[in-house]
């Protein structure tokens, strides 16, 4: 029973130790700016097409569903309000985070995992560089900067998707009506939680990906296992932390 409990607690301890070192390294020299920009390109620019696509369709589907529900009450004029609030508060941050978790937590875990099993991480330590400083911190900074930006783009494209459905496809309201109601619906409270969420999710995604990558054992099979675990664990924590943040904001 004790052994059963010991391993997750030890893993948790290792995770927080890694997280602590990764954060401390942001302030310490040497800084690997090149690696940060390369990761920003991979995580941010690389995820852009899929984030735009998913953002557009989630906004469009939201508008479609709401058009049916709101027409029952004769309130189709509120489509913009509802689409904007759901996208900015929940759908934008969570869907973007899940996409980036699937795309980048797995990418990070498999890259670092392959490096671990082929002794490249040990080689890095042997050559006098800190793997956490060189590999984890740049990925953490890059994800923390890019995920909120991707979310903002996803939110906007989602609103555009809603506009296409509500105004162009179903002709339920005028463009001015749609954009004005959307704009008025969003308050500072929504914006702050809509930006705080992706920032927290980014930390989870980068650190979970790096954590599973850095502790990979058992050859190529181990790399596969680490990748799967990274995506599953990152996605679960995205939902848990989303609940916690929403709970705090609901009370505000």
């Amino acid at each position: 029973m004790l052994d059963f409990l010991k391993s997750p607690i030890l893993a948790m301890q290792d995770f927080f130790a890694l997280a602590g070192r990764a954060f401390l390294n942001i302030l310490r020299r040497p800084h690997y700016a090149d690696d940060v920009f390369i990761q920003m390109d991979i995580i941010g620019v690389g995820s852009l097409p899929i984030v735009v696509l998913i953002g557009f369709f989630s906004g469009a589907v939201m508008a479609l569903q709401m058009s049916r529900a709101l027409s029952t009450y004769g309130a189709t004029g509120q489509i913009g309000t509802i689409t904007a609030i759901t996208l900015v508060r929940e759908l934008g941050p969570v869907l973007t985070a899940l996409l980036v978790a699937g795309r980048n937590a797995s990418g990070i875990a498999s890259e670092l995992g392959s490096m671990k099993v082929t002794e490249q991480i040990d080689a890095m330590r042997a050559l006098g560089t800190d793997p956490v400083q060189k590999l984890v911190t740049p990925r953490l900074i890059a994800t923390a900067v890019m995920l909120p930006l991707l979310t903002v783009i996803a939110d906007f494209v989602g609103l555009f998707g809603g506009y296409c459905v509500a105004c162009l496809l179903l002709n339920l309201l005028t463009p001015t009506q749609y954009w004005t109601t959307s704009y008025r619906a969003i308050e500072y409270n929504d914006l702050s939680q809509g930006l705080l969420k992706p920032f927290c999710f980014a930390i989870i995604i980068a650190l979970v990906g790096c954590f599973y990558g850095m502790r990979t054992t058992g050859g190529t099979q181990g790399v596969g296992r680490a990748t799967t675990q990274a995506v599953v664990v990152a996605s679960i924590w995205v939902f848990v932390v989303n609940f916690v943040i929403t709970r705090v904001y609901v009370n505000l």
Binding site: T118, E119, D122, A123, R125, L127, G128
Partner: peptide, 15 residues
């Protein structure tokens, strides 16, 4: 460690 050189068994090169 920067004062010690090490060759790993499989080379340990960054691929």
């Amino acid at each position: 460690r920067s004062r010690i050189g090490m060759l790993f068994q499989e080379g340990g090169l960054f691929d």
